[in-house]
Design a protein around this nucleic acid. Structure first.
Lengths: 217, 217
DNA sequence: GAAACAATATTAGTATACAATAAGGGGAGG
DNA sequence: CCTCCCCTTATTGTATACTAATATTGTTTC
């Protein structure tokens, strides 16, 4: 986990800047400038940017330059539509495979979320939400599923943060998470799939609402 | 399209070797060896390998080495399960957005597939099958969908090739493709979604069969 | 004054050299 | 004979130097 390579540090640094909105669509990146800025050579910068390009977060045109693409509002909606389907599948597959340790971990995560909900610590909450979903991806037993959903989930982290700030959405989220967990406990894959799918759909609708709100004011 | 950069050439070279089975799970890659082998420096090799790692096709442990992961039989099954859902969505979204030029292109692709079907040119056929699906991804109007499905579709290219060699599967495929196209022509998104989903599911079942066959002989 | 061409500067692509790290083998001590 | 430690080697990580391509700007000519 302590990925000490400069490449990965740079990668994570730029990625979080993009996903948190500090680097916006259209902003240019110049390898040499960024190298100087971060006090490293061009090599790790180059490598990190290539990885970002592979993820579709930046675009590089040969001998011209690198420009930020980021995640558009449309992308967010698309991601939720896909997650609605695929994350349901993940829940279904996870149902029969969850170990008791993993169940425990899920429970613990939910408890912590309730704790931080009272403190209104949004950053910690999105982190825990992340953890909750990642646990299920992993428990699905499919590395493809884990990879696919992992990427998509990361991409909407900013939208999720905004979403959680809508009144009552946090409580709803907690409630929906509990419903998913209880489906797991009952070992009912169909119920788990539906609970997860519903959860994602509601989150999606909430985000659309939140977006409309922010536009109208 | 003629991506002349060495990095991308190396990337495509190694990737096709993995996806076609010439490089198998567990095989080691050594940057310097491969650099010498291909007559280029380590830099483009390194960069290509990092991209492959991002796609999950190889695994690299810092200061130790790089090993091929590839696509397992389980991965193939998982990918088909996901595609069943998501590719249906792509067809649904594409229905209302397909331009007449794109429709024409789809028709042309199907005609060519029938042409090559008579010649039993499997390589050309998988290429055209690829094109058919990619067109729909693009027409969905969602870059996220295009990216997600594009990757998954590429990963199963070997399985698809094997699948098409099963007697009658080729004709079935053509028939299913026609059904998808006719749903597009009728501008019926629900029908298109179902046609696509059915197509992927049948392909999936066929692959499982083919795999069983090859194990039993 | 406008257009075209040439020179320059900016940028990415590639190669090479050097550093750091981890694994394995050999020698010394028990 | 076994074990532990150091040293060597193999491999990746990082920095830098060099090359090629492109865009821009300034100059010249019509």
């Amino acid at each position: 986990m302590t990925d000490t390579s400069l490449r990965n540090k740079v990668f994570n640094y730029i990625k979080s800047q993009i996903l948190n909105g500090q680097l916006k669509h259209g902003d240019a990146i110049i390898e040499s400038k960024m190298a100087e800025e971060l006090g490293v050579s061009r090599t790790p910068i180059r490598e990190a940017i290539q990885l970002l390009e592979m993820e579709g977060l930046v675009e590089s045109t040969p001998n011209k330059g690198i420009v930020i693409l980021g995640i558009s509002a449309q992308d967010v909606q698309d991601i939720y539509a896909i997650r609605c389907l695929v994350e349901g599948l993940a829940a279904r597959w996870a149902t029969g495979r969850l170990t008791s340790a993993q169940i425990k971990e899920l429970k613990k995560t939910l408890d912590l979320m309730e704790f931080y909900a009272n403190k209104d610590d949004m950053n910690e909450l999105t982190e825990l939400d992340n953890h909750f979903h990642q646990l299920i991806y992993k428990a699905s037993g499919s590395r493809i599923l884990k990879q696919t959903l992992g990427t998509l989930h990361q991409f909407v982290q900013l939208a999720r943060l905004e979403s959680l700030m809508v009144p009552h959405r946090l409580e709803d989220t907690l409630h929906e998470h509990r419903a998913i967990l209880s489906a797991f406990l009952e070992k009912d894959p169909t119920k788990a799939e539906k609970a997860m799918s519903d959860h994602v759909q509601k989150a999606s609708q909430n985000i659309i609402h939140a977006h409309r709100e922010s536009l109208s004011k």
